[in-house]
């Protein structure tokens, strides 16, 4: 929009002043509305509840959700992301009364080293999630899960598992992202954890 002052040196009329102010305010308002709409779209979440497993959660709305696998009970992937698809998944496995979170972490490491290329555990630490004791495992591996008929480089993936034992089963919450964007993506996982009920 272009505002012309028809006669330099002549003061604006009251109407013109109100028009200018209104225009500026309208522009600011529209900008703000755009931001809100954008935030609604990009920050929109979908809800998910599985009473069988006993979990309730929210996840980014346009992430591809899957619950039809024997390996996990819930998984979402950001399919709009180029390269490795940032993934959050929850799996459960039965444990004995003597099993600790650390035992589960070690067992996971032993099985993953057979199935994930160049799997390395970076760290294992204890913490709490809303007063629930958890084990945090950070790891890395090379992802090569592409069609054999295509030519793709493997991607270095960084992952973090949150392990806890609840009601006789180990709950493993995993977050995986390309190593070079792990930190940028991590807030999504933080938000996921903050809404997660189990």
């Amino acid at each position: 929009m272009i505002l012309n002052n028809p006669s330099p040196g002549r003061p604006l009329t009251l109407t013109q002043r109100w028009s200018t102010l209104f225009t500026v305010l309208l522009a600011i308002g529209m900008f703000g509305l755009g931001l809100v709409l954008r935030a609604q779209i990009t920050g929109a979440v979908a809800e998910y509840e599985d009473t069988r497993i006993g979990i309730r959660l929210t996840y980014p709305e346009k992430w591809l959700q899957d619950t039809n696998s024997g390996d996990y009970v819930f998984r979402v992937r950001d399919m709009t992301r180029a390269g490795f698809k940032t993934t959050i998944q929850i799996s459960v496995q039965p444990v004995s009364s003597l099993t600790t979170e650390r035992n589960v972490a070690d067992q996971l490491a032993r099985s993953r080293v057979l199935t994930l290329q160049d799997y390395r555990v970076l760290s294992i630490s204890q913490s709490t999630l809303r007063d629930i004791p958890i084990e945090i495992v950070r790891y890395t591996y090379n992802d090569q899960s592409t069609s054999p008929f295509l030519q793709s480089f493997s991607t270095v993936v960084e992952g973090q598992d949150i392990l806890t034992i609840q009601r006789g089963q180990a709950i493993i919450i995993s977050f995986r992202a390309a190593a070079d964007s792990f930190e940028d993506e991590y807030p999504v996982f933080d938000a996921f954890l903050s809404d997660l009920e189990f």
């Binding site: 979908a46 591809l64 039809n68 295509l150 030519q151």
Partner: peptide, 21 residues
Amino acid sequence: FTWAENQLYALAITDREGYFE
């Protein structure tokens, strides 16, 4: 489409040259 994987018939990811199958 509600971004549920069971609504998909198939899925392909492009390789480093953008090719997919």
